[in-house]
Simulated scan of single mutants.
Amino acid sequence: MSVKPAPASAPFAGPFALATLSAPDGPAFPALVTPDELVVDLRTVLDDDDRLTVRRLLEGWPAVLPRLRALAGDGSVERRPLAEFRVHAPVEPRQVFQSGANYRQHVIDLHVAHRAPGDERPEEERRAEAAEIMDRRAADDLPYVFIGLPSAITGPYDDVELPAWAEKPDWELELAAVIGRPAHRVSVEEALEYVAGYTIANDLTDRATVFRRDMPQIGTDWLRSKNAPGFTPLGPWIVPTEAIANPDDLRLVLKLNGETMQDESTKDMIFNVARMVSYASQSAQLLPGDLVLTGSPAGNGMHWGRLLRDGDVMDGSITGLGAQRTRCVAEVAS
């Protein structure tokens, strides 16, 4: 099921974006979407192939991008209203790279909240200490990246099922970079050349299963806490990099049932998009269509003492990338 798309005065920046759509009872297909919410079926104008996908387009991105620019300005191409179609996650990646502890204010808040036993210093002193640690980390340390599963991805307006075992499901709105060229051991300076565009991700997490209770020395259990089906609402669009002037200064806003929970700029990131992409590429080969999630700012449910439950509606938006709306539905016991 899906909910009505979130209202937006400007769905995305630039003259066009990529999407994956389907007509009722029809197969999914790659589409060019314009800001006035008209759709061009890219199967009919680029390849005449029912097997064409957004990921295949990204595999030929340097040649495809100029053709998309031309199509966006070609008034003779058939266009249909977006309202006729269902919007899916814009791409099916082979790999999902996720980031933790990458927003300065968020990590400082965590540092202050988790006071060591016997530490009676005032909050201002502990906050200043945390800020100094963040400065050193940005200058000298490395990003924290782990792997997510593509099977956790769902559409930007689809319902999200909360598993019965998830005791503390939480939200994490994030900017996601979409890779457009194979990238391996690329430098920070050249990293953004390998990014085709950006989209919105909500990286849901069950806080109760992040750490293994049966064997604490193992540490984090990202498989269980983050990869339930539907735990990564994605999209609605992939907006090309050329339409986003500065990915390191975009506003992220997440509202829960209309109340603002997260509201921060990507300029608060400790490691910016280029550093994240470069770092991931030092160990792995990034492939076209892969996602690099860049972390989530302050304002998660654990901060507010209010976690997700049946019937909640999340509205997530990022400057220039549009908005997603997802409803939480409790798993029905079998």
Rank of each mutant, 00 (worst) to 15 (best):
K267R: 15
E193P: 05
T241S: 14
N272C: 07
L293V: 04
N257A: 02
V210T: 06
T199F: 02
A245Y: 01
G299S: 10
F231V: 00
D221I: 01
F211A: 09
N257H: 02
D249V: 03
F231C: 04
E190N: 15
V195Q: 15
S265D: 06
G289R: 15
P240K: 03
P229V: 00
S225G: 00
L287I: 00
G197I: 02
G299Y: 05
L256F: 04
L256N: 00
M261S: 12
N227E: 14
K255R: 15
P236C: 09
A245P: 05
Y279V: 01
P288W: 10
S225C: 12
M215N: 15
Q262L: 02
F231R: 13
I238N: 10
L286G: 11
D268H: 14
E259M: 13
S225D: 00
S265T: 02
A284M: 15
G219A: 04
D203W: 02
P247W: 14
I218T: 01
V195Y: 06
D214V: 14
T266P: 10
L286N: 12
M269K: 03
F231G: 01
L256T: 01
Y198N: 06
Q282T: 09
S278I: 01
P297A: 06
I218V: 14
D214Y: 10
Y198L: 06
M302W: 03
T220C: 09
E189Y: 07
T205H: 01
G219N: 04
N257K: 07
K226E: 05
T266V: 00
W237M: 11
A208N: 02
N300I: 15
L252N: 00
G301K: 08
I238Q: 08
A196W: 11
F211L: 13
Q217Y: 14
P288F: 11
G295E: 00
N227T: 13
M276T: 01
E264M: 09
V239T: 12
R251H: 15
A274F: 06
T220I: 04
A191R: 09
T241I: 12
V188A: 03
Y279E: 13
P216G: 01
T209G: 01
G258A: 04
T294A: 02
T260Q: 13
S296Y: 07
D263C: 10
S278G: 11
E242N: 02
D214G: 03
S278C: 10
S283C: 14
T199V: 03
S278Q: 00
A245C: 04
W222Y: 14
V292M: 07
D268T: 08
Y198S: 05
F231E: 01
T205R: 08
S187E: 11
D214I: 08
G197Y: 14
R251A: 08
S265R: 15
F231P: 00
F271Y: 14
A228K: 00
L204A: 08
V188M: 02
E264I: 04
P233F: 06
E264A: 12
D263G: 05
V277D: 03
I200T: 10
P240S: 09
V277E: 01
L291D: 05
L192W: 12
P236L: 10
A245V: 10
